[in-house]
């Protein structure tokens, strides 16, 4: 670090950037269900109570997120196995009394692609590279999350392989792309 005459510090930083952003590989999951709950922010505790009470064997999630509307409402999303969609959504519906503006809905089936790479959480431009590649080709994105060093993208059913190919045009990936359908033996 070098200090200037005005006593302001100048900092030299190194930015890690490749010609094509590296990933550790894409993973795709097909034929999942996306549960969407709309409710007031003040009902978050009620939602939590409902979710933690779901007592289904093998019940879990592949992705979950909350987003605020900017007003007093929020959206809660839970991406889970298709076999569990009705049981989980029915359970949430039963446990949170649905007031004005509250709803529980399903988008099913949907696909998921997720990936991570070196220092994704510390570098600019990674999300833009991913979303830009999909936007250029008109790929619809139902849900997206960039958290820690992971990027998750939920797309319509049947689009996982095409999405992986589009992303592979801007990301450097290991040769093998892993893909699997979620079976009853792999509920999460």
């Amino acid at each position: 670090m070098v200090k200037s005459s005005q006593n302001k510090s100048l900092e030299t930083i190194a930015v890690y950037w490749e010609h094509r952003v590296k990933t550790y590989g894409f993973q795709t999951l097909e034929e999942l269900s996306l549960i969407e709950v709309t409710l007031p922010l003040i009902r978050i505790a009620d939602l939590g109570l409902a979710v933690q009470k779901i007592d289904l064997p093998e019940a879990g999630f592949h992705l979950t997120l909350i987003e605020q509307s900017g007003g007093h409402m929020c959206w809660f999303y839970l991406l889970t196995a298709q076999e569990l969609e009705h049981a989980i959504s029915r359970h949430i519906t039963e446990l949170i009394s649905q007031g004005a503006g509250e709803s529980v809905s399903l988008k099913s089936p949907v696909d998921l692609i997720f990936f991570q790479g070196p220092h994704y959480g510390d570098r600019y431009g990674i999300a833009e590279a991913a979303f830009g590649a999909l936007k250029t080709c008109g790929m619809p994105i139902l849900l997206a999350a960039c958290s820690q060093s992971c990027i998750y993208i939920v797309i319509p059913c049947g689009k996982a392989k095409e999405t992986a190919s589009l992303l592979a045009q801007v990301f450097e990936v290991p040769k093998k792309i892993r893909s699997r359908k979620v079976s009853s033996k792999s509920k999460r």
């Binding site: 999630f61 979950t64 909350i66 605020q68 820690q148």
Partner: peptide, 8 residues
């Protein structure tokens, strides 16, 4: 909670 997301 302004937002929440899961990762791996």
């Amino acid at each position: 909670i302004y937002a929440m997301a899961s990762s791996l």
